[in-house]
């Protein structure tokens, strides 16, 4: 009996999870047109570039809704349901950069009068206001809140734990899951050079001990076990970008100089690969 109830509940959760979070626009705004739905690969039918990064991180579906006001001002709400809260957080961080939270939005958010981004559970959402009228910002926040209320609370796991907190520059944390989302951070080599296979999340952040110093970046990927980490390290060494000049290499560490005359190293530590790049001095 308990099992049966559990199955029914699970089914309900699945159903609720599949419902588009569209909310009700605030007073004075009217929904216009149908909900546009872009599942899976059909994201390419809507998105203004960057679809690959959604897919690499884990994308399920997008719902798009438009609301208008009497003066023909229009808002668009886009809710991207990702495959996990971690994937949603990853795309939020990619799109938001240094966060500028809007007061009154009931979730982690960033934005302004043109665009408001928020993340909750497995959903990343954006409210667009092409006119950029500051006076419309409260309406954008209200519609975002209405949609956020329909999204299940499911916080992401703590992915940044492998990155030391000391000297970390706040707001520089990034999550990547393959070559597309690693590319903004660094180029170690072609293709899936860190052997993430679109499954393993990696994390990165910038560090600086002294405000006068140049920052450097730490990158960590954790693998299923030491053997997988060793295989990934070997793959990296074998396919290292030709623009990186190898200075030292052994079974578990490689040190190189890059095209900007900065140093970098990748070290295997148990089931992880830990990298430091953009180093001014040779470690």
């Amino acid at each position: 009996m308990i099992r049966r109830v559990g199955l029914i509940l699970a089914a309900l959760v699945c159903l609720v999870g599949a419902m588009p979070a569209i909310g009700v626009p605030p007073d004075g705004w009217t929904l216009e047109g149908p909900i546009r739905h872009f599942p899976g690969r059909e994201l390419y039918g809507h998105i203004n570039g960057g679809a690959e990064r959604f897919h690499e991180l884990g994308f399920k579906e997008l719902h798009v809704r438009r609301a208008v006001r009497g003066d023909e001002t229009a808002l668009t709400l886009e809710t991207y349901r990702m495959t996990s809260p971690e994937a949603a957080l990853a795309i939020y961080l990619l799109q938001s950069g240094r966060e500028k939270p809007v007061a009154g939005v009931a979730a982690r958010n960033s934005g302004g009068a043109y665009q408001l981004s928020a993340v909750k559970g497995p959903v990343f959402l954006q409210v667009h206001n092409p006119a950029g009228d500051e006076a419309v910002l409260p309406a954008m926040a209200a519609w975002a809140n209405a949609a956020l209320a329909e999204i299940e609370a499911d916080p992401p796991r703590e992915l940044f734990a492998p990155l030391p907190e000391e000297d970390r520059i706040g707001g520089t944390e990034r999550i990547f899951r393959g070559p597309v989302t690693l590319e903004p951070i660094y180029t170690f080599g072609p293709g899936d050079i860190l052997s993430q296979e679109g499954v393993l999340f990696g994390v990165a952040a910038d560090y600086r001990a002294d405000p006068e110093e140049e920052s450097f970046t730490r990158i960590v990927v954790a693998y299923p076990d030491e053997k997988a980490a060793a295989a990934a390290f070997n793959h990296l060494v074998e396919h290292l970008d030709p623009y990186l000049e190898v200075l030292e290499s052994d079974g578990g560490r490689i040190l190189f100089r890059d095209y900007r005359d900065r140093f970098g190293e990748v070290r295997r530590d148990g089931d992880r690969l830990e990298s430091r790049i953009h180093l001014v001095s040779r470690p």
């Binding site: 570039g49 679809a51 690499e56 070559p179 597309v180």
Partner: peptide, 9 residues
């Protein structure tokens, strides 16, 4: 406007 590259998958 599409983003560059993709993984092996």
């Amino acid at each position: 406007e599409e983003a560059p590259r993709s993984g092996a998958l």
